[in-house]
Design a protein around this nucleic acid. Structure first.
Lengths: 242, 242
DNA sequence: CGTGATTTTGAAAAACATCAAAGAGCGTGG
DNA sequence: CCACGCTCTTTGATGTTTTTCAAAATCACG
């Protein structure tokens, strides 16, 4: 399920941005390496701290009793994730490394102090949280009310926007470390149905035939249309300003 | 679609809690009355401010191009909602009054100052945001991976936990201001399918036959089982501590 | 070149949506 | 007080989407 061909620090590398730079500079926390598939935090456990991703992708997921997984969100390089829930420090979801990853775990008290002392970081964090909320809301809309094609098209758009600085351009060969199984867990579909849907998109020449985890977009406009989005609006909504 | 029989301030009244009391005392903002169905904020519009609900329920929703609605969350009395998205102040979803409601709109600068000056409020807000995240994550899991019965059972549990202080007890006749259409928009189902599913739950004697919007729970344990939750765990996860 | 993971394909079943119409509850105006 | 109109719920028949199960094909990698 993992993608060992993409070590943290190569393809899935930190985009430099304000928070990332500040944190990297400010923190004396030693980054920790995580192998692909490694579980960093289990739902219900006491939260270790705030996770700051330096390289690689993390997954936030929840499971039904019969073992089906729903991915709540990915955590990309430069992003932070706070697993806390309503009461003190119970994690509300599982956190695991999707690829090989490098992570700094910031203790809660350090984090709290940092935010108190640095209103600029507080502001950046608030914006990011707002962006995170928007992303989940968009996904919820599609999982709840749209058919497979729209869900997948949307997921591709979102992940491309988040993982590249450049945004979406025709013919981009962009790489996400997802198997079809994982993509299905993300958009609420079976891997089988993901496969069929992707093939349909390829036959319509919306997507090209990248190998494995490489997605090639042939017709951005059509893709955005299927995803029911306006690319610029979506970017403004779900990508926090640099 | 609205429930005019429940004026703000009667059944759907503010539960007193720390934030609510503080805000009510601190703010000189005049509460504003909203009629059921009234739109308070449109997606894409510049956000007016933070919404603090004193009475009645609000709905946060998003729409597909063909007009289907997905409810992202409800905002109950005593809760606050910030419609901001990633960039400056673009609302990322529609906000409307579900019932008649009383709302205070707190300007962003006032809100920001308040949070800066009152670390206790900041802490409460952070907890609430964490709880909100947990709630959406739970719903996402069920909408993405569970069948209709579990989705609806879960929604009932969540709304009952949130709207009553007492929690869930057998034989409770508890009232949510939702039509089956609205419940469907919440859990990603058609109103027709909601109807059939509710009837199945009633035939299994999990629910009783309350009129209209009154839900009577006959068998809490079985309901929790169908919803795939542990009630106490769920409460700790999605209800911010008083 | 073989082995395990991933993707593809097909056939059948289940879940859910859609369409259409009838029934129940409730407020309003006559 | 009743009849009317309205919205909401229920029900049936039918169609589509998605899942499930099972097996073959492809790919990555040692």
């Amino acid at each position: 399920m993992a993608n060992d061909a993409n070590p943290a620090g190569s393809s899935f590398r930190t985009q430099s941005d304000a928070l990332a730079e500040d944190l990297a500079a400010l923190l004396e926390v030693t980054p920790r390496a995580a192998a692909a598939e490694e579980v960093l935090q289990m739902e219900g456990d006491t939260a270790t701290g705030i996770f700051f991703v330096r390289g690689g992708w993390l997954v936030v997921s929840k499971y039904t009793e019969d073992g089906k997984r729903q991915i709540i969100d990915f955590v990309l390089p430069g992003e932070v994730f706070d697993p806390g829930s309503a009461t003190n420090r119970q994690a509300s979801a599982d956190l695991a490394a999707l690829t090989e990853a490098t992570v700094s775990v910031i203790p809660h008290d350090v984090w709290a102090r940092l935010l108190r002392e640095r209103p600029d970081l507080r502001k950046i964090l608030d914006r990011r949280n707002a962006a995170g909320f928007s992303r989940i809301a968009e996904r919820l809309l599609r999982i709840g009310k749209s058919h497979a094609e729209a869900r997948i098209a949307y997921a591709i758009c979102e992940l491309c926007l988040r993982s590249t600085r450049s945004g979406l351009v025709d013919g981009v060969d962009f790489s996400v470390p997802l198997t079809q199984q994982v993509l299905g867990d993300f958009v609420g579909l079976t891997s089988v149905h993901v496969s069929r849907t992707l093939r349909r998109l390829k036959r319509q020449a919306v997507l090209g035939a990248g190998d494995q985890m490489n997605i090639v977009i042939h017709d951005v406009d059509r893709l955005a249309e299927i995803a029911e989005i306006d690319l610029d609006e979506l970017r403004a909504e779900i990508i926090p300003p640099a």
